[in-house]
Amino acid sequence: MHIVVCVKQVPDTKIIKINPKTNTLDRRSAPAILNPYDAHAVQEAVRLKKLVGGTVSVVSMGPPQATAIIKKSVEIGADEGYLISDRAFAGADTLATSYALSKALERIAKIKPIDMVICGKHAIDGDTGQVGPGIARRLDIPPVTNVIEVTEVIEKDKKVVIKRKLTSGYEIIQAQLPCLLTVEKEINEVEYSPLPNMIRAAKYESIIWTVADLENVDKVQLGLKGSPTIVGKMFSPPKPEGGIRLEGTANEQVNKLMDLLMEKKELFTLQTTK
């Protein structure tokens, strides 16, 4: 089985700082990491490979530095890594991102046909979760989002059985291969990389493509030009109006609160039941 995982380099939002004056991201403050959900995606691909055999490739769209997360993916156990990097991709929203990545996937499929694509549930910076389903549409393969378990791979029938998280509970889905999954963190634990992987990763050279290396690309659909959405403005979240500050000693404040709550009966009718 050939599984391709889409991996994105993101700033570590746990550490990210916002410049309060300009309302922009202070990029220097945040180290770049492999999107945490994508680490789980690579781990799952590696797990499935151990189960049924095959190859795990990863693909990323980003600046040249993004080869760092391809190395990281090789550490987790990926066999091959592709980076598509070109100024023409810059400023892409999710529509243009899924277009560029689907073109890279088509190219990879020529090298070796793809049986499954795995994405993270979302990237922690853009945080839309729209790229995975977008890629599935463009490749015309069924998407299964919010996956918490790949229960079974039935190779002879080219089918997989999957648990998909819902608002409350989950569903069990059978999907035909090739398909695209987006995975939740619950799907697995990202394991410590074994030493041979680390050594291989240290020496690994990613395969880097520009737009010219891809086929049948409609350049109008790339980057800023191919993006229907734009960021209009950034602003601080509105401060909600605070209400009444109760005064006095602890007893007085508590009594006052009880009075106020009794007055608000119409809102949340305080009922008594025997």
Binding site: T94, L95, D127, T128, P228
Partner: peptide, 14 residues
């Protein structure tokens, strides 16, 4: 996400 891709239009998330 799927509908936006086919209609080639913008989708603002969350």
């Amino acid at each position: 996400s799927a509908v936006a891709t086919d209609l080639s239009t913008g989708l603002t998330a969350d």
